[in-house]
Amino acid sequence: MRLVIPILLVALCFVAHGQDLKNKIHEVDTLSLGVFEFKKVLRYSFENATICINAEAYINDIKQLHKRYKSKVLRAEKNDAMLPSYEKKLQFIDSLLSSLKTQIRKIDTINLSHQKFIKVELRSPTDFDEYIDRNDCAVYNKEGVRQFRIIRQKASYHCGPLCGWGGRLYFLLYQDDYFLKATDWVS
């Protein structure tokens, strides 16, 4: 009997703790995307959507990322455990930047997949949510159909002390899964 009460208390704590993991939706709105016209376009593909933005702006973001990682590599000590990771990422960014500079001179639409960034454990340097919020992009579903309305859901969850997330989730109409997640805070 002595063990039953502590075990029940622990189990109750886990059940209550697990219930907090659901997203608390604070606000849902619909964004309208309009005309999108640039001479040079970057088509960035996620698993279930593609976002098109100004290619030159994207290349500028890659240049800034390159500077940050080059600085990390130069500042790192030879015995720094993170140095191999920084060097691997810098090599990827350097190769990508070179490729993008070549492509922008030759073609009008550059294709890039989010999977390339996942393989080297990086996120894209561009905040695509800002492009959507400013109506400065075009979004397509996985079938290639242009989407003029995007659902933005502001949400958060708390799973305990120093454990939580808050941000925005972007959905295509009639889709249950979000295609873009923007983080505003993490604890």
Rank of each mutant, 00 (worst) to 15 (best):
K101N: 05
L65W: 00
L83D: 02
K78R: 13
R43M: 09
R68A: 09
E56R: 05
K101V: 07
K78V: 13
L112T: 02
Q115S: 15
K72L: 15
P84N: 11
I62F: 01
G34M: 07
K88D: 06
G34A: 08
L96P: 00
Y86H: 07
R68H: 06
C52T: 14
V73Y: 02
C52A: 13
K89P: 00
Q103P: 04
V35G: 08
C52L: 11
L122N: 02
L122S: 04
R43L: 09
R68D: 08
K67Q: 11
N48R: 13
K88E: 08
K40M: 13
K67V: 06
S98W: 06
L100F: 05
V41L: 04
L122E: 01
F36I: 06
K88L: 07
I110T: 07
K67M: 09
S98F: 07
S113V: 06
I110H: 01
K88Y: 05
T50P: 01
N54V: 10
S32W: 09
T50V: 11
C52F: 03
K88T: 09
I107E: 05
N79M: 04
N54T: 08
V73F: 03
I104F: 11
L100N: 02
Q91K: 15
I93P: 00
Q91P: 08
P84H: 09
F38V: 14
K119L: 10
M82G: 04
A55T: 02
L74Q: 13
